[in-house]
Amino acid sequence: MANLPQDVGREAVQAKGWFKAHRWLLLRRASQLGIIALFLAGPLLDIWIVKGNLAYSYTLDVLPLTDPYVLLQALVGGVIPEAVAIVGVAIVLAFYSLVGGRVYCSWVCPVNMITDAAAWLRRKLGIRGTSHASRSTRFWILGATFLLSAITGSIVWELVNPVSITLRAILFGVGLAWILILAIFLFDLLVARDGWCGHYCPVGAFYSLLSTWAPLRVVAANREACDDCMDCFNVCPEPQVIKPALKGAAKGIGPVIQANQCTNCGRCIDVCAEEVFRFGNRYSTDPGIDTKPKPVDQVQPTSS
């Protein structure tokens, strides 16, 4: 029954129609491109809504937003920032603690569009080979970037950070940034599946820490409808997060995807023809929404 990676979403399109099978993808692209457009409207059209970039931005001359990761590196390097920067960090931390830190990765980060494109092409071309680096490498890199900031007293990671370099290339001039972007694309396409975002990016690692307690989660609410087509595993950039929620019923694991690496991208919801997944909250396991699937679990043996 398992589908080939190149056929991801085919059944969903047949069952739900193209738009419903791409709903979250389209929304995410709108969000990612919309953010870039907002930043670009200033310099290109002289419409100043947002100034700056993802490290720090100032919206409508009232709302500061600061990237907590870069500011933390500065703090480690011994910097005392202005009050606006701290307010900006507080707002960002609050937001991502609610919706999930890695929403930054799938709904905001411009590199995501590049690595998604590489993953799509990888599926279409049927490239199977992948390097077997550990997905926890990114956390070691995250630690290393803080260590480097502390030792050198400068924000070393920003010299090479593809996330900020990519957006800065779009907003402030490309330079040789396209080489880095192309390198990441080719790496993800040919060397490792979900290579950059899934294994190495310390920005994603940092934001996944914010995901740990976030209430907004993808829930495999209808998991007994799963027909093992593997589409969600094939499309998911962090497939290891799905298994416990989708297949854990027997072990008594709830249907909520609890792993903090889940980016809340919603592609699993899109590509599932059986409509197993939906957005819910992390407490679904306890009383609330989970009441629906749980009785079915218990009923199943008797009814079948």
């Binding site: 600061t66 390097g77 920032p81 290339a169």
Partner: peptide, 23 residues
């Protein structure tokens, strides 16, 4: 160590003389 490379100074310079170092 203090500059987080946000480019706000670039945006607020009325004479557009400032640039950000590119790769």
């Amino acid at each position: 160590s203090a500059c987080i490379r946000c480019g706000l100074c670039v945006r607020d310079c009325p004479y557009d003389i400032l640039f950000l170092g590119q790769l």
